[in-house]
Computed example of a mutant assay.
Amino acid sequence: MCTSVLYKNGKYSYFGRNLDLQYKLGNDVTVCPRNYVLKFRHLEDMPVHSAIVGMALTGYGYPLFFEGVNEYGVGAASLNFPNYGQYNTELEEGKKNVTSFELIPYLLSSCRNLDDVRKELAEINLVADDFNEKVKSVPLHWICCDKKGSIVVERTATGLHVYENDVNVLANAPEYPAQAVNFANYLNLTAEYPENRIVPHLDVPFYSSGMGSDGLPGGLDSMSRFVRAAFMMNNSKAKETDAATLNQFFRIMQTVEQIDGANHEKDGFYEITNYTAGANLDTMDFYWTTYDNQQINAIHTKDLDLDQSELIIYPVGHEQNINWVR
């Protein structure tokens, strides 16, 4: 399970996600330069395209991106969508037939804003190809964004759906419309000092600060994480600086982390937040932490040679870095 957000703070916008799984996948920070040849199953190869940065699996000779941001400030992330996601098993003539593992690089290769993404999605048929015998197609849905806002992309049994995402949050199942309806159950939550509405004529003592958020769901399930992330992000206050926005982004993502031992899956493993990653949509700077290393790591993506033809790969660290003060 995962959570992804677009966090906007004045002129600063950060897009990123938590990747929650029962095991480590061996993902690396991956930069796909402009001249790396992107190959597609049912479309022509793309030898020149926008540069992309994100977390990806690269051991199979192709960047399998979990999320990414391109040099124009467009972002996309894929999240698990069990029991609901369903791709087309047939190719469609007149459509751009794109597999689930190709959607992120395909959209980020050319789209310069969210309107471009919407136009591309109108022509796409999401097909159910496996990547190979080991990497099978899994049900996913996507959040796509630019600095102005975000959308949710879901392919279900009733077709491809694109939803405007006003709260700029995505978790997992059920479908986005059901998540939005459930969100309405929490409209009375507030970050402000609460008002006595149940018996206004009585002087009811408040025993604690933060009582306006009483009832905020604290579970690790996807609906709880959706509401919690939306509440934290849309009530967030941070100085309008890059450093403060970055710090607040990671603070928000910590409120929906999966802690080892707290979520025992039926396969016998415990689900944890493998990594948290985020990018500044203006600068393309990319930041990440891992479960075992809480230190924020980063690269200035645009300082790299983005015109080369080979992937640039940075292995993530899993040893805790500690700043010892002497």
Rank of each mutant, 00 (worst) to 15 (best):
L38I: 05
T276I: 11
N168I: 01
I272N: 05
G215W: 02
V256K: 03
N234L: 08
F81N: 00
T283H: 00
T290A: 04
Y270P: 04
F226K: 10
V53M: 02
V199R: 14
N188C: 08
E44G: 15
L304A: 03
Q179L: 14
G212P: 01
T301I: 04
Y12S: 09
Y72L: 07
D116Q: 05
N263L: 11
Q22D: 15
K24E: 15
I52D: 02
L43E: 13
V98K: 05
G159S: 05
K147Y: 04
F250Y: 07
M46F: 10
A244I: 01
T30K: 00
D260L: 15
Q86S: 10
T58L: 08
G54R: 03
E257C: 09
Q294L: 10
Q254C: 08
K237P: 06
Y186W: 11
S209E: 12
G68I: 02
T255L: 07
V181M: 11
L107Q: 02
S213D: 08
T301F: 01
H318P: 02
A180G: 02
T283L: 00
L246T: 04
N196A: 06
E257G: 06
V69M: 05
K148H: 13
P63A: 07
L170F: 02
V181H: 10
K148N: 15
K239M: 11
S100E: 12
P315L: 07
L114R: 06
V169T: 14
T276L: 03
L114N: 10
T158H: 12
L121G: 09
G210L: 12
V325Q: 11
D20E: 04
A262F: 12
P33A: 10
G73L: 08
R228I: 04
Y270D: 12
S100T: 13
N35V: 05
V138T: 14
V48H: 14
V316P: 06
P33I: 07
E265V: 11
N35L: 07
L187I: 14
M223F: 10
N70C: 00
L140P: 02
S110K: 13
Q86T: 06
A180M: 15
Q294G: 13
M284W: 00
N263D: 14
L187K: 14
P177T: 06
P217W: 06
T190D: 02
N97K: 02
L6M: 05
F206Q: 12
S50G: 09
Q308A: 01
A184N: 14
A157Y: 06
R17G: 00
V153E: 00
S222D: 01
S4R: 05
M253A: 08
N80T: 12
I272R: 06
G212I: 02
C32V: 12
Y7D: 08
